[in-house]
Write a protein that binds this DNA or RNA. Structure first.
Lengths: 116, 116
DNA sequence: CTGTATCCTATCTGATACTG
DNA sequence: CAGTATCAGATAGGATACAG
C-alpha cells in the first residue's frame, strides 16, 4: 500500500468547472467576499459559486468566515494547508503554458481561444 | 496575454475517469497492447478504454501504433512530448499522498478507501 | 448580501451486442 | 484482437425564483 498512483486524489480537489479560477482569484487577492468573487468571475451563477466553494472548504483548501451581521458578510481565504497547493498549481500552470505553445507548433497558431 | 491561469489547460488533459490509471500503466510498462491495458484495468469497458486512449492520443500524450495484421495488434506508448508530463504527475502523486495523510490527521484514519 | 430550492439540460460513464 | 454502435443511467452544470 501507498505506492499506488494518487494523482486522482489531487485531481479530485482541483476538478470542477470553476475551481481553478476561484482558487486563482483567492490566491491573488488573499481574501474575497462572495459578491467580489461573483464580480471577478462574471459568468458564474450563485449556485455554482456556492457549490464549488463548499467543496474546496470541505477539502480544507479554503476557509469560510461568516460575519454575523445584517446584511450578511462572508469572506473566503486560502487555509494554511491550502497554501501547500501553490507549487502544484504553478507546475500545472507552467505545463499548461508550454502545452499551448506545443499545440501552436503542431497545429499552427490558429484557434488560440479554447479553454477559459 | 499569457499571464493568465493555465491550470485548466493541464487539467483538460488529465481529467477523465480512467486517464490517470491508463497513463500510470503505460508509463510503468513502456508499451502496452489494448488487451493488456484491459487486463491491467479490470473494471474498464472497451468503450471507455478506447475513448480515453483516443483523447490522450489527440493531445499528443500517447502514441498509437497499429500493426496491419490479422488478428489486429495495437500498441500504446508515451510520446516523447508526453514524457514531459512526468514531473507534473509525480508532483500530483506526492501532493495526493500528503493530502491523504492530512485527511487522516483531521478525520482520523477511518475511511481509508475512497478514490481507487 | 449570501445564499437555497427547483427544475432542466448537457455531458460523462456504463451495459450490451455487434464487426472487420 | 481491437474495436464500434446503440441505448440507458448517472452526474455535472445552469436558469430562474425565492429566502433569511
Amino acid at each position: 500500500m501507498s505506492h499506488e498512483c494518487k494523482v486522482e486524489t489531487a485531481l479530485d480537489i482541483l476538478v470542477g468547472k470553476w475551481k481553478p479560477v476561484i482558487l486563482f482569484n483567492i490566491f491573488q487577492h488573499g481574501t474575497l467576499r462572495f459578491s467580489e468573487l461573483q464580480r471577478l468571475i462574471p459568468n458564474i451563477t450563485k449556485k455554482m459559486l456556492t457549490t464549488q466553494l463548499r467543496e474546496l472548504e470541505y477539502h480544507d483548501i479554503i476557509n469560510r468566515k461568516v460575519y454575523p451581521q445584517v446584511p450578511p458578510k462572508v469572506e473566503y481565504s486560502i487555509t494554511d494547508y491550502g497554501k501547500g497547493l501553490t507549487p502544484l498549481l504553478e507546475s500545472m500552470h507552467e505545463w499548461g503554458l508550454s502545452h499551448i505553445a506545443h499545440l501552436d507548433k503542431i497545429y499552427g497558431e490558429n484557434n488560440t481561444e479554447k479553454s477559459n
